[in-house]
């Protein structure tokens, strides 16, 4: 198949880092903090690379929006096996207010420009936890969406997607082109090997501006403040099961 897949990746604070709220409540501390590719985006990249290895698609194009540093995230995806990258340059204040709606407009414009048959994204980013970009990209393109995917099967010009829903699994069949968002069990992303990291350095990353794609970055959402969540007080240690059960009975919990 000669299809092209577009994969979006996001640079976020590494999942293992303890998040600290800034003292002036304007956001969380990001300076000097380790960043990585959003784990759900890694799964999206892996799925696209697997499709290519199975020769079901021709090319994997990886996109990231943000300041210069997102090129590192694009390189990671290239080292995992993506073919080329597009860096949509957004910096300064625009980068602070860049949200899923603006990113979806960028992705939809690129999907058209690149003539993609499939867009694969992570189901959510672990920083803003929005879980919106895939759904909105699909809407803007008027394509069907297979969100929270745990299995994706290409069936000619159709795509079968098994989705993680609240009570279990759901299967849908989508007409291509389509948007898929990756859930945890879709696959296990590979680690980039050293030779592949070296090879990725030679792969091409195009830099474009949102205005080149006709996308306006105005945001009508404003974060007024960011706070620490209320902390739960640690309780007591009990020694025996008997003791535990009597305390739970006293509290009226059992």
């Amino acid at each position: 198949m000669s299809a092209r897949v577009l994969v979006g990746v996001k640079r976020v604070i590494d999942y293992a880092v303890k998040i600290r709220v800034k003292p002036d409540n304007s956001g969380v501390v990001t300076d000097g903090v380790k960043h990585s590719m959003n784990p759900f985006c890694e799964i999206a990249v892996e799925e696209a690379v697997k499709l290519k290895e199975k020769k079901l698609i021709k090319e994997v194009v990886v996109v990231s929006c943000g300041p210069q540093q997102v090129q590192e995230t694009i390189r990671t995806a290239l080292a995992m096996g993506a073919d080329r990258g597009i860096h949509v340059e957004v910096s300064g204040k625009d980068s602070d207010t860049l949200g899923p709606l603006q990113v979806s407009k960028i992705l939809a414009a690129l999907a058209k420009k690149e003539d993609a048959r499939l867009v694969i994204l992570g189901k959510q980013a672990i920083d803003d936890d929005c879980n919106q970009t895939g759904q909105m990209t699909a809407a803007l393109l008027d394509w069907p969406q297979g969100t929270f995917a745990s299995e994706v099967v290409l069936e000619g010009d159709k795509l079968k997607v098994v989705r993680e829903v609240d009570g279990g699994l759901e299967t849908v069949r989508l007409r291509m082109p389509a948007v898929v968002t990756a859930d945890l069990r879709l696959n296990t992303p590979r680690y980039a090997t050293l030779p592949n990291i070296m090879k990725a350095k030679k792969k091409k990353i195009d830099v474009v501006k949102p205005s080149d794609l006709g996308v306006d970055l105005t945001s009508r959402l404003e974060v007024l403040r960011v706070d620490e969540p209320p902390q739960r007080q640690a309780g007591v240690k009990v020694e025996t099961v008997e003791d535990l059960l009597s305390k739970l009975k006293e509290a009226g919990r059992i």
């Binding site: 949200g99 709606l101 979806s104 879980n131 759904q135 990209t137 699909a138 809407a139 989705r163 009508r220």
Partner: peptide, 21 residues
């Protein structure tokens, strides 16, 4: 899973930014 799947699609069609959860 239902609301998260549906609302962003509606919002994008209205050209508004949704707020999750």
């Amino acid at each position: 899973a239902f609301g998260k799947n549906l609302l962003p699609r509606v919002a994008a069609k209205l050209d508004v930014a949704p707020i999750s959860d």
